[in-house]
């Protein structure tokens, strides 16, 4: 499974409160989450996320278990998130909703194309292919299906 997008560079320890603030958790409308994603980090970021690959520092998605964080990113058009490490609940949530997450420590240049192949296990931020641990067969199948719900429907 391959993908590409322009890089958006973010620092370490981006928590789920920063991805989608608690005040937006009353609604079940995912367009509202997408509209307000990263609002507390940078209010101008949300409209730039369509077709983007987020390249972040360590511990991306730490904090709350809110799946709304992963959904907000996907809904805003984020193609994938690359970080040296992810908080585990976010990592699982991302897989479960079909948002590719790649564990890699990349030097990030804003706006530069980032290409990846989840099955083969590499990511390229314009400086050559960097090998990464490929997702397990099951995780890959879930992401390819678009998340655990569609995966489950097909499997059934």
């Amino acid at each position: 499974m391959q993908g590409t997008g322009k890089a958006i560079c973010l620092p370490s320890d981006i928590d789920t409160d920063l991805i989608i603030a608690g005040r937006y958790l009353r609604t079940k409308d995912r367009r509202i989450w997408a509209e307000h994603v990263f609002e507390d980090l940078d209010p101008k970021l949300a409209p730039r996320l369509a077709g983007a690959v987020i390249v972040a520092g360590k511990n991306f998605g730490c904090g709350s278990s809110r799946e709304q964080a992963a959904i907000a990113l996907k809904e805003a058009g984020v193609v994938a998130v690359v970080a040296p490490t992810f908080a585990r609940i976010f990592f699982r949530n991302a897989i479960n909703i079909g948002l590719p997450v790649i564990e890699a420590d990349l030097a990030c240049t804003e706006g530069k194309a980032v290409t990846f192949d989840l099955s083969a296990g590499w990511v390229d931020a314009g400086t050559g292919r960097k090998k990464v641990a490929p997702l397990s067969q099951r995780m890959l199948a879930i992401v390819q299906a678009g998340g655990l719900v569609p995966y489950w429907k097909v499997k059934r």
Partner: peptide, 26 residues
């Protein structure tokens, strides 16, 4: 629990962990 601080129940000697909503649906 569908909340990250579910790990608190480990105080009883349970294995307790927070999960997201899709996992909870499952």
């Amino acid at each position: 629990g569908a909340d990250s601080h579910t790990c608190m129940y480990g105080a009883t000697g349970a294995f307790a962990t927070g999960i997201g909503s899709t996992d909870m649906g499952f």
